[in-house]
Design a protein around this nucleic acid. Structure first.
Length: 284
DNA sequence: CACCATGTTCCTTG
DNA sequence: CCAAGGAACATGGT
């Protein structure tokens, strides 16, 4: 479930639900997701703390908390990895098989579940400092982008996944942005023209913005979705997944005709990850 | 059994 | 020191 748009949608959904809630208890079922924070450390820090805000940096979730009798704020950092999800659920409902951390909020509880346990929920903020600018923020300028692409000979698709270049673009939206900008995923980063750099920057921003816009129209209540939180994500089942797929023009569409030129969409492997592109409109 | 999967980090090699 | 490539992490779907 995790690229910038999905995390942003989750943040907007959870922020008002969490604000003002006090953590009564903490249950850690998979201590590895806390690393390098220990279970004892997390429980001691969070018990009694109150949520004051929730924001996002790249694909990271930033939970702001205030502890009783303390002025200094506490920051809880979340990352969903490949399969992580977070939602509130009633205490009467059964916990999912791969619940990693459960926060008791009184009437409800917040669950962080993660099938593959690649994500994390931790007090460690290492990694945040290394992140590049927010793609939708003011620092992601064409000039910044150009300077940082110049020094790399990596294929542009691979470079887009570098979170120190720009924070939040993942494997799906990297392919989507390159398709929109009509740039070959194999083109070396330092070979992009000034025009291509401008187009790609704009394509990244549009692809992410549109994805956030589509998501916000969906229901997000746990109760209204038969046990799911309503967040659509690739690999999910039912309506959520098909809705998501319609928004993707090349990702996972190998063999299908390009919507612009009818050429077949191809799949290739770069840096051990799949890339999807149109052989007709994304020439090197 | 084979291969694939939205992410990040660590290790090796050059 | 840096860049690049690949494996590892863990589980499930097809």
């Amino acid at each position: 479930m995790p690229e910038l748009p999905e995390v942003e949608i989750l943040v907007r959904h959870l922020a008002p639900l969490l604000k003002g809630k006090t953590i009564r208890g903490v249950e850690v079922r998979r201590p590895k997701v806390l690393a390098p924070t220990t279970e004892r450390e997390l429980v001691r820090s969070l018990r009694g703390a109150k949520f004051t805000g929730l924001s996002r940096r790249g694909k990271y979730l930033l939970f702001s908390l205030r502890r009783p009798k303390r002025r200094d704020p506490l920051l809880l950092v979340g990352h969903l990895g490949m399969t992580g999800r977070m939602y509130l659920m009633p205490k009467s409902a059964t916990l999912p098989k791969h619940a990693a951390v459960v926060l008791d909020l009184g009437r409800t509880r917040m669950v962080y579940e993660d099938t593959r346990y690649f994500g994390r929920l931790t007090l460690d903020r290492g990694g945040l400092e290394k992140l590049g600018p927010e793609p939708l923020g003011p620092d992601f300028t064409a000039a910044y982008f150009a300077v940082n692409l110049e020094r790399s000979r990596q294929p542009i698709k691979v470079k887009l996944l570098d979170q120190t270049l720009v924070a939040g673009v993942g494997n799906i939206y990297a392919s989507e942005a390159l398709f929109r900008a009509r740039i070959s995923p194999r083109l070396a980063a330092n070979k992009l023209s000034a025009g291509q750099i401008k187009n790609l920057r704009q394509a990244i921003r549009e692809v992410l913005t549109e994805a956030i816009g589509s998501g916000s129209t969906l229901p997000l209540d746990f109760a209204g979705n038969g046990g799911r939180d309503g967040l659509f994500y690739y690999g999910g089942s039912g309506d959520e997944s098909s809705f998501y797929q319609e928004r993707l023009l090349v990702y996972d569409r190998q063999g299908q005709p390009c919507i612009r030129c009818r050429s077949p969409i191809k799949r290739l492997v770069q840096g051990a990850r799949s890339t999807f592109y149109c052989v007709g409109c994304q020439r090197a």
